[in-house]
Every structure is written in structure tokens, then in C-alpha cells.
Amino acid sequence: MSFTLRSVKVPPNSVSLEEARSRTFEFFRSACRSIPTIMEIYNLYDIVNPSQLRSAIASQFRKNAHITNPKVIDMLLFKGMEELNNITEHAKQRHHIIGQYVVGNQGLVQDSGSKDQGSSEFLKNFYSGNYF
């Protein structure tokens, strides 16, 4: 997608973990600030509110919280920026956003694999998401 390549510039590598960390927060802020625009262009008012979207973004970040290699963080940041750009440029459709960020990681196809799907309601909630 050429317009994506135009709008996302590859930033120089982070020299330290600290710099990568501050860049991550910077990107998180810019993602949060574009939430109102995203709500507007995908018409999400009736299904989600901004704080839920913010939590969804935060959980995407938290998935990679264990990574300590600045180069890997830079790469993930780049992918994140690309994603954010695609979303704000309306390169996606409404169901992409809903499927990926509103319905959440469990998605429309439930992952009912080897995990214990037994009696414990707490464990089910625990598997299905961060917030319950």
C-alpha cells in the first residue's frame, strides 16, 4: 500500500531500552488521541465507548510487555504505527475494528482448545481476557 508507506516514516533506532520505552508511551498517547476520530469514521458510538477502546489498545501493548530488546520494540512500534495509520486513513472497514478491538482477542471464533473449560467460572473469565 503506497499511501501507507508514504505516511509512515521509519524512525531511527532507539539507542536504549529507556528511549524505546518512552517512544512506546508516546505512541500509546497518539493512539489514544486518535480514538475520537476512529469512533467517528467507523461509527462506533453504539457499540463501544472510548475508555473500552483505550483498554483494548493498552492490552495490545501489554501483550508485548515482556520484550526488552530495543530493536524488537522499535519493530513492534513500527507495526503499531502502520496499523494506526491504516485505521485512521479508513483503509479498514468497520468489522475489522469491531472484530479486532471491540469483540476482543477471543474473537468470533472461540478458542476452545486444550485449556480447562470445566466448572470454574473464574478460570473461564481469566482465560478470556484481561478485564472481567
Binding site: F25, R29, C32, S51, R54, R62
Partner: peptide, 12 residues
């Protein structure tokens, strides 16, 4: 990250 999220909520 939670802290940043709360600050963003305050901004909003």
C-alpha cells in the same frame, strides 16, 4: 501503562 491510560482518560 495504566498510569498513562488514566492520564489519557483525564485528558478526555
Amino acid at each position: 501503562l495504566d498510569t498513562v491510560e488514566i492520564v489519557m482518560a483525564l485528558e478526555e
